[in-house]
Structure formats: C-alpha cells, structure tokens
C-alpha cells in the first residue's frame, strides 16, 4: 500500500477514535469523503473499511448526515457486489432509524426480551 493510502487510513482511524470520544464528527465525514475519492485506486482499502464500518456500529447515536454519507460510500462500490456489502448497507440503514423510534417501540423491544 503506498504512502497516500496509508495517510488516508491514519486519518480515518483517528477520526473513528474521535467518534468514540464523541468529538469531531464532521471530520470523520470529511475523512470518509477523501477515502471515497481514493477508493477506486486502492482496492485493498475496501477490506479495511469494512472493519471501520463495523466499529462505527458499536457507537451510540449517530448523526443522520454521516450515515447517509456512509451509505453513499458503500453504494458507490459497484464492483464489490458481495454479501458483506449488502449487510453493511442494511446495518447502516438500521442505525439511521434509531432516532425515529418512538418510546413505545423502545418499550416493546425491551418487553420482547422478558
């Protein structure tokens, strides 16, 4: 992997850490936008990005804008028509619905576990 790709990876990793600390969400979106522009040139980055998306799923609430950008990024990878890509998009879509859940729906999902 060349120097530019490594730099981008570094940016994304540090931005992921910022998200975990609830800081600097906009720079994550900017970093991902940079990643998207370079993605076609650096095929190996796609494998790493899946791990980064997985890490994002574990965090609490997300800004809708960032999720929409993430979905666009995954959708742009037309040549990667894999089961993982479908699952990634489904998970991101589910994550974007968190804000829309009513309190009654939250109660029902807790009762389901009783």
């Amino acid at each position: 992997m060349d120097k530019k790709a490594k730099e981008l990876e570094g940016i994304i990793r540090s931005n992921i850490k910022s998200i975990k600390d609830n800081k600097n969400l906009s720079s994550l979106c900017d970093g991902l936008e940079e990643l998207r522009k370079s993605m076609d040139s650096y095929d190996s980055l796609w494998t790493n990005t899946k791990d980064w998306f997985k890490r994002l799923f574990k965090f609490g609430k997300k800004k809708d804008l960032c999720i929409a950008q993430l979905i666009d990024i995954v959708n742009d990878f037309d040549k990667y028509k894999t089961e993982d890509k479908r699952k990634t998009i489904n998970k991101l879509t589910e994550l974007s619905k968190i804000k829309d859940r009513t309190f009654l729906e939250k109660i029902i999902s807790v009762l389901r576990a009783s």
Partner: peptide, 9 residues
Amino acid sequence: AFFDLGFRW
C-alpha cells in the same frame, strides 16, 4: 427502554 437497549438486543 430509556437507554434504547432493546434495539441493541
């Protein structure tokens, strides 16, 4: 429910 743990489950 307040902490939306049902969604995680």
